[in-house]
Design a binder for these strands. Sequence first.
DNA 1: CCTCATCATAACCGATGATTATGGAATCCT
DNA 2: AGGATTCCATAATCATCGGTTATGATGAGG
Lengths: 315, 315
Amino acid sequence: MIDAAGLRVMKAIADEGSFTSAANALGFTQPAISQMVRRLEQRTGTVLVERYGRQVRLTEAGQVLARHAVGVLAALDAAEEEITAIAGLRAGRVRLQAFPSSSATLVPRTLAILKARHPDITVTFTEAEPPESLAALRNGDCDVAVAFAYEGGDLGELEEDLSLLVTRRLMDDEVRLVVPGTHPHAGDAAASLADFSGEEWIAGCPRCRGHLLSLADTAGFRPNVAFETEDYVAQLGLVTAGLGVALVPDLILNAAKHDDVATLPLSPASRRQILAVTTPDLQRVPAVAAALDALCEAAGADPKASTAELVGAKT
Amino acid sequence: MIDAAGLRVMKAIADEGSFTSAANALGFTQPAISQMVRRLEQRTGTVLVERYGRQVRLTEAGQVLARHAVGVLAALDAAEEEITAIAGLRAGRVRLQAFPSSSATLVPRTLAILKARHPDITVTFTEAEPPESLAALRNGDCDVAVAFAYEGGDLGELEEDLSLLVTRRLMDDEVRLVVPGTHPHAGDAAASLADFSGEEWIAGCPRCRGHLLSLADTAGFRPNVAFETEDYVAQLGLVTAGLGVALVPDLILNAAKHDDVATLPLSPASRRQILAVTTPDLQRVPAVAAALDALCEAAGADPKASTAELVGAKT
DNA sequence: CCTCATCATAACCGATGATTATGGAATCCT
DNA sequence: AGGATTCCATAATCATCGGTTATGATGAGG
């Protein structure tokens, strides 16, 4: 019934004292104001403007509108300002979820870049394994999920979760075999998994464990998993103590130097992909786009060309 | 850029959770919502709604709009409610100005009627002689002026002030000659002014004095004005004291009984008209219309047929 | 008394914003 | 699985809104 334009007109009349100058103030012509007032009057069924001679005055009802106009227009301006602030990265929010082993290196670097580049956007970070982070993304509780996918093995499993989502390849993370420094194969240039079929194994998170089983199966044995822990520091500790061997991704190993263990590249090599995942719409939100760029940069990937399909993903 | 309709839509989406039910809630069809959102998005240049699968969620920018919508729409509703309250006489204001001698009888009765009939409108009353009250009316400081005009004499003078204004005839107020009870003519059925050419006169307000002079002139003499006071009680007191005679309108004489004086009808009779004056636009304001009706009723005039020309007014 | 300033009105016209009809895609159910 | 359902997007259409220019009426002022 009453809209913002009408209020703006009433306020302009109240401020300017005549239709003509109100029109000038608003950038309209005089008849526009004239019939706008008439429309408002017949819509509200009340007299809003008193025409006396060639001057106009607001009636009480007109003054009511003009008075409310101040607040309403201010609120509209405030909303508009907030929107443009978000659009201009002077405000905004990104909710990031990343898997634990990325928290040590990739995420801090990303947050630092983001903070330096856009100090006014607020970034929240939650640690979550890919299944949970993708669920949060789907659920609307998260804007960007950093996930990983092992090549080959359970890619298909993840892939179904990625329908309707967009992914950006951040980096390839090579998986290495970690053995005690005193291990006979410690000095080898590369490790063939079959040579370690008799070892005791230390497994990580469920999906990592699945990857281990998958690789071992290809190598023709079933690993004897003696320990399971999602904490990579603990895994390395166990290896150092000579209690077994483990598959650990480079991303972890690069975070800090670990003595008394040898990290051997696998032969054939195995790697996992680190991915940034979001939704097509969120991708276009400035703060989210900035976060994605920061992630790519922190990972050392080309921010442009990384909007890629999963390697080996079917279509 | 952002209008009330857009905010309403965003809020409906936030509340309902889908375009379809938002459309139902607002009484629109689904495509209307769909393209309303699209328009808003390209106007603001931001993503407001995140389409994930077949569900929709507001982005941060969208939530900003939905949040502001609450306040803005509430303010609009409040404005609308105030307007309809004014239209429905559940609120509103009437600023009444009346000349002093009407304050005693006509105005109190009017205010009583108005208060009984529309207890929620606020009436303010200011005493003012017709020139001032009409100036206030012209100036926008008054909604209804109660004025009087003597027949014949200075009607033309008032008439020019009445251009652009509308008048309602409230009553005819006959002017009587007041003489001491001991006066030789005190028992007469009527008074011919010429018979009192030798008296000392007590004159009232400037316009009343003008009327006296005019009548006397017609009767062929120039009155000896010994006293001037705008206070009718004082005038009657002076008459009672035998210090002179005076012309006093019925309106005053009916307000209270005055002993020791005789009130004689003039021959030929002279009367003044009591008028309610307002502007054409204000006439259509409910509270003003109610006040006019109350005035007519208090004056005993027919509220319908009283939108009259001044008696003798040229066109 | 004439001129200027201001508002009202008419005729016109483009953009806005709704509708119906239809299509595509994700979710749900069997 | 696959089919039905549900939800959003799009296209085509159309009325109304809200603006413009041109013009008229009228009060105010030199």
